[in-house]
């Protein structure tokens, strides 16, 4: 097990630095999914590298100057409408389309998200909660839209023992 993890050590180092991994990314991630020790190492190295980068950035004299510029810039932007504390929030309402347009729009967004997330690789399954979270359609049209995608043979989704969809992959 030790040697097996050793193999991924350099890939973890390079992953955090944004360098070439020297191995298929999927292989590294498959290992990370099952190895808590390597996950901890990834988090640890990521933190260490972020400390190094932050310290180096703030040693430069321009860092404070840049932040001052940023403050001036955002403070000079037009002020938003003031709302008194305690007043109810009025949110803009979404225009509800007819059912088929709604489903088609939802399917389009879900497909777009899934394709991007999997990088066009149908082997990678996207967890349904992630799709739910990252697409606008969280309510009714969601499963209908998934159904539309499946009918159009653009997507597959797996179900758990309760017959609830868990993951989707996109062709």
């Amino acid at each position: 097990m030790k040697n097996k993890c050793e193999k991924y050590g350099m890939a973890i180092t390079n992953y955090v630095l944004g360098e070439d991994l020297r191995m298929p990314a999927e292989e590294l991630f498959a290992h990370l999914r099952v190895c808590q020790k390597c996950r901890d190492e990834l988090v640890d190295w990521r933190e260490t590298y972020a400390v190094m980068r932050t310290e180096a950035y703030y040693k430069k004299p321009k860092a404070q100057k840049k932040f001052q510029e940023l403050l001036e810039k955002i403070k000079n932007l037009p002020a938003p409408t003031l709302r008194q504390a305690g007043q109810p929030v009025t949110r803009p309402t979404r225009t509800v389309l007819d059912a088929s347009s709604e489903i088609n729009s939802a399917a389009k967004d879900i497909y777009k998200f899934g394709k991007g997330y999997t990088g066009g690789n149908p082997e990678i399954k996207v967890p349904i909660p992630v799709i739910r979270k990252k697409t606008y359609y969280k309510g009714y049209p969601f499963y209908e839209a998934m159904g539309t995608l499946v009918r159009d043979k653009k997507a597959n989704y797996t179900k758990d023992k309760d017959n609830q969809p868990t993951h989707a992959s996109f062709k």
Binding site: Y15, L21, A25, E26, L28, F29, L32, R33, R39, L42, V43, G116, Y117, G119, G120, I124, P127, V130, K134
Partner: peptide, 19 residues
Amino acid sequence: NYWRIRGPKNIYGLALDLI
């Protein structure tokens, strides 16, 4: 992370749910 620098060749998006 999810929307702006994620692309077909970006490997990082795959590992986001791991951490």
